[in-house]
Design a protein around this nucleic acid. Structure first.
Length: 125
RNA sequence: CAAGUAAUUCGCCUUAUCGCUCAAGUUUAAUAUUUGGGAGGAAAGUCCGAACACCAUAGUGCAACAUAGUGGUUAAUGGCCACCAGUCGUGAGGCUAGGAAAAGUGCAACAGAAAGUAUGUACAGGUAAUGCUGUAGUGAAACCAGGCAAACUCUAUGUGGUGCAAUGUCAUGUAUACCAACGUUUGAGGGCUGCACGCUCGAUUGUUGGAGGGUAGACAGCUAAAAUGUGCUGGUAACAGUACAUUCAGAUAAAUGAUAAGGGCUUUUUCUUUUUAGAAUUCUUUUCUAAAAAGAAAAGUACAGAAUUCGGCUUAUAGAUUUACUUGCUUA
């Protein structure tokens, strides 16, 4: 039921992104890094997510697109396990900080690890 | 058949599951659902030329930059086509930095005494005397001469700037020029404070409304056009004209994807089988070598992702494909 990933779940507001990078907290599971912050949206969604890949490490747009698509796909398939019971709303930004190419399996396992850490951090607060 | 030259076309496919985005229809409080569309030959580099938009703009000259045989083509070009010349190649063809050296400045590897403020050596001639004269020698070139303009320069021609993050429309919040109404030196309002009193600042003022400006954001620009395909006509060609058909991405932290299974294609290696040829042999057979075909396994399946739109150029690219031509060999 929750495998969709529509426009409303994407992080698009420039203001919010600036706020996120200046105030947000960080969790790392190499080669991924998650920046997150509690916030509120007008919409009825639990989290808004953006993904990013450094232009410095991946010169060609094809490779950047490939990694961003993989990250979005993995988030789409796994988000039900982490956000269904959450009551607060989060703005998230997932960054790929590795320098080499990757595949679906590594991104999948690393992102599950990343969100395990994220859940642990937020439940402590 | 082999080696090559010039061009052409293509550049993975199918199914299942889960998604993304745009348009249209139906439907809701959010939305849901149906149907259809959804990357390239270079979308890349951003190197030329245009369209379009805004800004600037009397005229002329200088500077800077670009171009450089002749003719044609185009919306335009520094692109493209044809021809001439030079040059490389046996050839098909390739390449060209193809204006000017009697305007001036500068440069010239190797060789050579010296590549212009010079004149050495040897021999010969000549003089009062002297590189004064000739020859030899080096070199592409050795003094009333030439080469180089991928050196400055000169000549001719051309060029305003910024790019869709252009530009236009709407506009929440915050601060506020200006205008109006109301309040206010008989103290409005602010600060200290939970409130009152009190203290203090205080007319460059407070509240409300209008209005302007235009940040977040939204919409337009924004995809039907110098469009694409096929045929015919004109032209050596680039290209032009014409008839018919087609509608073919519009995202914006930026869609066009992910996973699984199967199939193509390619190359090399390994293994197996079959056929042919040759060699060895105990001449039924067996073994070895070479070539071809089939099958199996493994590996590979490129370069690369629209961002206002076109015409070019340049660069990257696994592999496949077709056409024309050249050279060599063989056969008739």
């Amino acid at each position: 039921m929750t495998f969709t990933f529509s426009k409303k779940e994407k992080l698009k507001s420039q203001k919010l992104i600036e706020h996120l990078f200046s105030q947000g907290k960080t969790v790392v599971a190499y080669p991924l890094r998650l920046v997150y912050i509690e916030t509120t949206f007008g919409d009825d969604v639990r989290a808004k997510v953006g993904v990013s890949v450094s232009k410095r490490h991946f010169k060609h747009a094809v490779n950047r697109n490939r990694i961003k698509r993989l990250m979005r796909e993995v988030y789409r398939l796994n988000k039900g396990d982490y956000f269904n019971n959450s009551s607060t709303q989060y703005a998230l930004m997932i960054l790929y900080i590795g320098k080499d190419g990757t595949d679906f399996e590594t991104i999948n396992s690393k992102m599950r690890l990343l969100f395990d850490k994220f859940i642990k951090e937020t439940s402590l607060d």
